[in-house]
Design a protein around this nucleic acid. Sequence first.
DNA 1: ACCTGAACACCGTTCAAGT
DNA 2: ACCTGAACACCGTTCAAGT
Lengths: 215, 215
Amino acid sequence: MPSEPLSRGRIVAAAIDLIEREGADAVSMRRIAAELGVGVMSLYNHVPNKDALLNGVAETVLSRIEFTDDPGAPWTERVREQARAFRQIAHHHPRSTMLVVSRQLHSAAGLLPVERALATLREAGFEGADAVRMVRMFVAYIVGSLLREVGVTPTFAPAQTRTINADGVDPVLFPEVSSLSELLGECDHEAEFEFGLELLITAIEAYAGRREGTR
Amino acid sequence: MPSEPLSRGRIVAAAIDLIEREGADAVSMRRIAAELGVGVMSLYNHVPNKDALLNGVAETVLSRIEFTDDPGAPWTERVREQARAFRQIAHHHPRSTMLVVSRQLHSAAGLLPVERALATLREAGFEGADAVRMVRMFVAYIVGSLLREVGVTPTFAPAQTRTINADGVDPVLFPEVSSLSELLGECDHEAEFEFGLELLITAIEAYAGRREGTR
DNA sequence: ACCTGAACACCGTTCAAGT
DNA sequence: ACCTGAACACCGTTCAAGT
């Protein structure tokens, strides 16, 4: 009794569910088919192959970002909000995040955030090559932050995080790491993200000012 | 005629070779064993499982970074050099880069770069939580940049890069992207990296100055 | 047009057997 | 201590057959 007909959308949704529930390694065509109560090969009527399915997952997760843009706000605030919206991925789809940042997307889902960012930066007075550079810098920072948050890039908890300072770091070889091990062992992701974001925005404001001065 | 005895090092090296030659998807225990001219199960005498092997790959690639630290140089220059050294991963081991940034490492190989960064930042006057924050921001930026460079995060070449401006981006839906498509389609990775790096360093200098002022 | 089972060429890993 | 082949429980995907 298939309540709904199979479709690309349903397949992608099932994949996302499965990833969030059991991790990216659990995803297989056979597993997803089982989840949907159909034969494996039925999937291939709606999706060319596994790779395309995973692209679909990435696109869908990306398209679920809720952008709230206030055109009246100053550009700095708008940039902040866009960056934060992006970061929501790590919260709403933590185990799919790696997939989102590790797949080259060419769909509208991937283009929309860039479109918004470029528009905002234009308002800030950046055009052409400068605007593109700014977007790329922000994307790099955000992507790197998401990876840390999602637990793939180390937070630099040395050895095992649990046993603070009882960790096996040689204080002679790594004096700094070992003296800061307590701080390295904890990470307030939100605070870290905001810190870097503010620094970046301040830097961009200064950059705009410098350019203004030499024009 | 096994010229050399099997060892964890030889296995990891073979894996790196294979990844760089045929991509990360080509890596399998069976394939690596074949590459080394041994039975699959022989690998398990030196490596507990595939996951551990891939961690070994990440650690080894990371440990191959050539840091050249000039203690006499100003801290800004030392930070620059460390960031650039890290970026070399993308050039020396492009197809292993994803593995390096996507695995939580707890070995000395992963700690050394952090140790150096913390020492340099201490010299710049940052200690404790500030130093940790700075390192994390730099790592986020560098990791994100590497992913772009290595071709996983989009450079934002809309549709297919090759046909510049003949790409299928709707100029009504995406006016900014479509008007900047030419710039978005090309990416001088070195220049982009340096641009963000300078901005970051400038921002940190300003941050240090601000803090100094209010002390 | 959509679904499907059988089959093929792969996986990682356990186990028992060898030296 | 190190190596190994057989076996098990999985993969993605092709193909031919069904409706």
